[in-house]
């Protein structure tokens, strides 16, 4: 199981790096789905099967398909890929990379001080559901309102005048 965690982690990192380096959007999207699936595996290893299933279905499924639809609608072809190549100059990477590296260094520096080993134990759908519809029912309602607002906003924004 531990080996699975590290393998999935390496796949996730590589796939994610591949996403931001891609010039072809569809390829990038596929790498992103790979990364999300790897993270789903990690969730499973960490004893959260419900989260892992949702990650696969909602994230890697629904949301990414939405992306795909939009990319198809925009119909970005060879022209865009050439443009991407032009935009992605080595110099453009330097400043963001340094910034992110500093941030990462700081985060790692903070997290290094935690010394605790997780013994993965299954926290299944039942426990999550009991909490969701018990003390956190208000959060569920808020989430539904958020989705409704997103729906209305998306409809309005994407409408042709």
């Amino acid at each position: 199981m531990i080996a699975l965690f590290y393998i999935a982690a390496i796949i996730a990192v590589i796939a994610t790096v591949a996403v931001i380096l891609q010039t072809n959007i569809v390829h990038g999207l596929l790498y992103l789905i790979l990364s999300l699936l790897a993270v789903a595996v990690i969730f499973y290893v960490l004893g959260a099967p419900f989260a892992a299933v949702l990650e696969a279905i909602v994230y890697a499924g629904a949301i990414m398909v939405l992306f795909l639809f939009v990319i198809m609608m925009l119909n970005l072809g060879q022209h865009t890929r050439d443009q991407e190549r032009k935009w992605l100059t080595p110099r453009g990477w330097i400043a963001p990379s340094i910034m992110s590296a500093i941030l990462l260094g700081q985060l790692v520096n903070v997290m290094r001080q935690i010394d605790y080993d997780i013994v993965p134990a299954q926290v299944g759908v039942m426990e999550v559901s009991a909490l969701l519809f018990g003390p956190y029912v208000l959060a569920v309602e808020l989430a539904s309102i958020l989705l409704l607002a997103g729906l209305v906003a998306a409809y309005h924004l994407a409408k042709t005048k």
Binding site: M99, L103, N109, V110
Partner: peptide, 16 residues
């Protein structure tokens, strides 16, 4: 976005 990230870096530095 870069400004926000820089601000976060500074804040974490100060916090640490």
């Amino acid at each position: 976005a870069l400004s926000i990230a820089a601000g976060v870096v500074v804040l974490i530095t100060v916090g640490v």
